[in-house]
Design a protein around this nucleic acid. Structure first.
Length: 427
RNA sequence: GGGUCGGUGCCCGAGUGGCCAAAGGGAACUGGCUGUAAACCAGUCGCGCAAGCUUCGGAGGUUCAAAUCCUUCCCGGCCCA
């Protein structure tokens, strides 16, 4: 995982396409020099980080590997407010209990991606200062440095002014000041002089940079990364079922691997640059492979293997890859039980009720169809196979018996080309 | 607090007493072509095998009949104080 080649960090970030905007053109050169302290914030809006956050985690790690000190900031304070950016409507506030829960879970995840050793990295919670700052103190020390005029001009706020039926509460309007205050705190406490984030964070980051200049008369920097999007322009990391999470309980390693493996040709190269540690030569070779032999999906496989390993470890990645290989073989039914068992360990599974089920009922039980009608529709459209064999469109009501189960225990159901699930009997 | 406009299916959005399970678009799903891509083409897209049932912010009401009318409550936008 460590970059063995001594490529300057600025070069590294540039060829990977990770630099979107910088507050000062001199920043990249500085990154190749003496160690700086950098931070990126993560708000605990859910109890797990997702694929979108992973890019920021990767960036932190790249900074760290280049010798810089990194701070992962968990937004125990800002999470109470909610960033208005990128949203068309007001957020519903999290309760303090939910927030606490999310915070603990996310802090645990952050610690797995950045080295928190002394002098290497730090995990902080902005609740540490935000909960203890008085309102008057905040208004005088922070608010005084910004005019509403400039705050209103920020993209995150302006978009909420233009919306026909949306507005923005004073609460969310204040968010940028809180984030600016965070940066100031980290500057004072830890000498932090660089804040990173997605391009949607630009406005918030510059508030902090300005604040530090005005209050401390010091120069701090901001660096944003392009927003990761899919070929159709939508935000990356949202699957059909919602976000792709880093918590294996929410998104299994198998599901993560599958999501990555299905990356489009048009964007897989960008993802490899963003999310993996492959060298420029390797990535460009994979680009060529995609161009010349797209059907082999070598780039997608590399992406799925690397990122799954990064998030869940190499063993889980290998298992997910094996499960994919097995489950997408037409001969699944003829595999021996041991192979099947290991392959299925990661695939979505549900218990097989002892009584006979119709094909339609089995699909619902396995979670592949939301209702009986939907299940029947799928079968009649020819989109279902059981144990690798397509179900006749007229057979939705056929009762599956133990004779249909592989090794008497497994029912391998597949919807369409990609969606697989297993019903298994007994323990 | 006053005025005013609005809250429709995953999202946007039409519908203003029956012809409404509710137009249209997007998303999504299946099939075809492929490569477990993309694009494109076709079909599907509340629940139910069906008869039918349950939906249009919540609760009541008027009516043979309500997403559509009335009352009230909740939520949001804009303007005023």
């Amino acid at each position: 995982m460590a970059s063995l080649v001594p490529v300057p960090l600025s070069t590294e970030l540039t060829w990977r396409g990770l630099v979107h905007q910088v507050t000062d053109d001199g920043l990249l050169a500085r990154l190749d020099g003496a160690a700086v302290t950098a931070y990126i914030g993560f708000d605990p809006t859910a109890d797990s980080l997702h694929l979108g956050n992973l890019l920021m985690l990767c960036n932190l790690r790249r900074l760290q590997e280049a010798g810089h000190t990194v701070i992962a900031l968990a937004g125990g304070g800002t999470g109470m407010i909610g960033d208005p950016g990128g949203r068309s409507d007001e957020r519903s506030l999290l309760t303090r209990e939910m927030l606490e829960h999310n915070l603990r879970r996310i802090e645990g995840q952050l610690g797995r991606f950045v080295d928190l050793g002394p002098g290497r990295g730090l995990l902080v919670d902005n609740g540490d200062w935000l909960w203890n700052t008085g309102l008057l103190e905040f208004l005088r020390d922070v608010g005084k440095h910004f005019t509403v005029n400039q705050m209103v001009a920020k993209e995150s706020v302006r978009s909420r002014f233009e919306g026909r039926d949306s507005g923005i509460s004073y609460t969310e309007f204040s968010y940028m000041l809180l984030q600016g205050f965070d940066y100031l705190q980290l500057f004072r406490r830890h000498g932090c002089t660089l804040q990173g984030g997605g391009s949607d964070q630009w406005g918030n980051i510059t508030v902090g940079v300005d604040l530090i200049r005005r209050v401390e008369r010091a120069t701090a920097y901001g660096l944003t990364t392009p927003l990761v999007t899919m070929a159709d322009g939508t935000k990356y990391g949202k699957s059909v079922a919602g976000a792709v999470w880093l918590d294996p309980a929410r998104t299994s390693p198998y599901a993560l691997w599958q999501f990555l493996f299905n990356a489009e040709d048009a964007t897989v190269g960008q993802y490899l640059r963003f999310f993996t540690w492959r060298s420029r030569e390797e990535v460009e070779a994979l680009d060529r492979a995609t161009a010349e032999q797209p059907g082999r999906r070598l780039a997608q496989r590399a992406l799925a293997d690397d990122v799954t390993a990064l998030v869940h470890g190499p063993d889980e990645a290998a298992r997910a890859a094996r499960a994919a290989a097995v489950l997408f073989t037409p001969e699944v039914a003829s595999l021996d039980e041991a192979t099947l068992l290991t392959a299925l360990a990661d695939a979505p599974t549900a218990a097989l009720p002892p009584e006979g089920l119709t094909v339609a009922e089995a699909l619902v039980a396995a979670g592949l169809a939301g209702s009986g009608g939907a299940a029947r529709r799928l079968v009649s459209q020819g989109g279902v196979s059981v144990n690798g064999r397509k179900v006749d469109p007229a057979d939705a009501e056929r009762v599956l018996t133990s004779a249909d189960a592989v090794h008497g225990r497994f029912l391998l159901l597949r919807k369409g080309k990609r969606d697989q699930a297993v019903l298994r009997a007994g323990a």
